Amino acid sequence: GPMASDKRPRTAFTAEQLQRLKAEFQTNRYLTEQRRQSLAQELGLNESQIKIWFQNKRAK
């Protein structure tokens, strides 16, 4: 629909990254900035991508 703007492409996470994020989520529903930074480095992701993933996951 018209609401779907092309400005922010959805990140396609790899299965491996998703597995890691899910495991982290089961341990911590809320990430500290430090955890998020190390996860971002570990997974080669953007911190904001991880932050948003957690927000979306909590919203469900």
Rank of each mutant, 00 (worst) to 15 (best):
E42S: 05
R35S: 06
L21I: 03
R35E: 13
Q49C: 11
L45R: 01
G44L: 05
E47M: 05
I50R: 00
Q19H: 08
K51H: 13
M3P: 15
E16M: 09
A40W: 01
A59Q: 09
R20K: 09
I50W: 01
K7P: 15
R58A: 09
L45C: 10
Q19A: 14
E33N: 11
P2K: 14
W53M: 02
R58T: 09
E42M: 05
T32Y: 02
K60A: 08
R36I: 14
Y30L: 08
R29C: 11
A12Q: 13
R35Y: 07
I52M: 12
T27H: 09
S38A: 13
A23C: 10
R35H: 10
Y30I: 09
A12V: 13
A59L: 12
R58Y: 06
N56H: 08
R35T: 07
G1N: 06
S5W: 00
E42F: 03
L21E: 00
L21D: 00
S48K: 08
P2L: 04
R8G: 15
L21H: 00
M3H: 15
R36K: 10
L31Q: 03
K57Y: 12
Q26M: 10
T27F: 10
Y30K: 08
F13S: 02
L31C: 05
F25P: 00
E42D: 06
E24I: 04
P2M: 05
G1R: 02
A4G: 15
R29K: 09
I50F: 01
G1A: 03
E24S: 03
R35G: 06
K51N: 14
T11I: 10
L39R: 00
Q17L: 04
L43G: 00
N56C: 13
E42P: 00
N46R: 10
A40P: 01
T11V: 12
N46I: 06
S48A: 11
R10I: 14
A40H: 02
I50G: 00
R20D: 01
K22C: 13
T27Y: 09
L45V: 09
Q49L: 11
Y30N: 10
R20I: 08
D6W: 00
K22D: 12
A23Q: 11
N28Y: 04
A15P: 12
Q55M: 11
A23E: 12
D6C: 09
G1P: 15
K7G: 14
A23V: 08
Y30P: 04
R8M: 15
K57Q: 14
F13W: 07
R35L: 10
E24V: 05
L39C: 01
S48V: 12
A23I: 12
P2F: 02
Q41V: 12
K60P: 05
L21Q: 00
Q37L: 10
F54K: 00
A59E: 08
G1T: 03
R20E: 02
R8F: 15
Q17D: 03
Q17C: 03
L18D: 05
G1V: 03
A15T: 13
E42C: 04
W53Q: 00
G1H: 04
N28L: 04
R20A: 07
E33Y: 08
A40V: 04
Q34W: 06
A23P: 00
L45P: 00
D6G: 06
L45Y: 01
S5Y: 01
A40S: 08
L21A: 00
A23K: 09
N46L: 09
R20Q: 05
F13P: 05
M3Q: 15
N28H: 07
S5P: 15
K57S: 13
L21V: 01
Q49R: 06
Q49F: 08
E16D: 08
R36C: 14
I50K: 01
N28D: 10
R10C: 15
Q17N: 03
R20G: 05
L43H: 01
P9N: 07
M3G: 15
R29L: 03
A4R: 04
F25R: 03
A40E: 03
N28A: 05
D6M: 01
L31F: 03
S48N: 07
M3V: 15
D6R: 03
A12D: 08
R36A: 14
Y30W: 12
Q17F: 01
Q41W: 06
T11D: 10
G44C: 06
P2R: 14
L31P: 14
R8A: 15
T32S: 11
L31S: 02
R8H: 15
R29T: 04
